[in-house]
Design a protein around this nucleic acid. Structure first.
Lengths: 126, 126
DNA sequence: CTCTCATCTGAAGAGCTGTTCATATGAGCA
DNA sequence: TGCTCATATGAACAGCTCTTCAGATGAGAG
């Protein structure tokens, strides 16, 4: 049932790694950020904002989503302070606010571009 | 209903940004990778593997998950070639195989550590 | 060959996520 | 003041995800 819960093969390594493990809070936080980047449409929005601010209208046009979907997505991103809104009359201009996320985006996109043959979706060992 | 679908505020910007937008395939791929990093337990596994290979047993111990959960998670990560398995008898030693993911992890964790007061989970503009 | 143990797998259920539709808000304009 | 348009919001539903439980696989020991 438990299998290995009791025994540990490399106790020292386990202890050391466990020591270095970031606190649960940090991991949750990080997973959260990754989660926000884990949607193609949200990704499109953020990529669109890499170059500067855009209104909801234009974001919908650029990313090919309904305005409602865009608004919902922006709401989420705003709640996590990844984007920020500037109001001009009835328009709302959004911009990428989190430099950390910008870095992650840059890094991820740079690598994806170079990764031509990586749509495996299959087993590696079995 | 559509609201803005027809009109675009800054047509030039929209065209330019749309031009620079990576192909859908790349975005899906990237979102996919982020999705794999979007779970605290998977994150724990990957962080544990940053220092070198570990068997399923020890991974379960270090990350505090059931072996079954770990196995399922590793299967997923393996399918995307993020980790690789080495077999030694009935043991399976896993290691982090994707340097790109390693970079993302390093970057993300480095920043999360410095981000003491960033558990907002609330509105930014409203 | 049989038994044990580490790992893997499949099925199933609970919960989360993203989209849509309908409607609300609030600014500018006539 | 009343209309229109950009954006925001809420409810609801479909689809995906993660965990667990039960059992399968395959290697080593006797």
């Amino acid at each position: 049932m438990d299998g290995c819960t009791v025994k540990v093969v490399d106790a020292d390594r386990v202890a050391a790694v466990h020591e270095r493990m970031p606190p649960a809070e940090d991991l949750t936080d990080t997973a959260d950020v990754f989660g926000l980047l884990a949607d193609p449409n949200r990704l499109r929005l953020l990529v669109a904002l890499l170059d500067g601010e855009l209104c909801v209208c234009d974001l919908a046009a650029v990313t090919g989503q309904s305005e409602s979907a865009v608004s919902h997505a922006l709401r989420l991103l705003r709640a996590h302070r990844i984007v920020a809104a500037r109001r001009a009359g009835r328009m709302a201009y959004y911009r990428l606010e989190d430099p950390h996320v910008r870095m992650l985006l840059d890094l991820a996109l740079a690598h994806t571009e170079h990764t031509d043959a990586l749509h495996p979706e299959r087993e590696g060992t079995t």
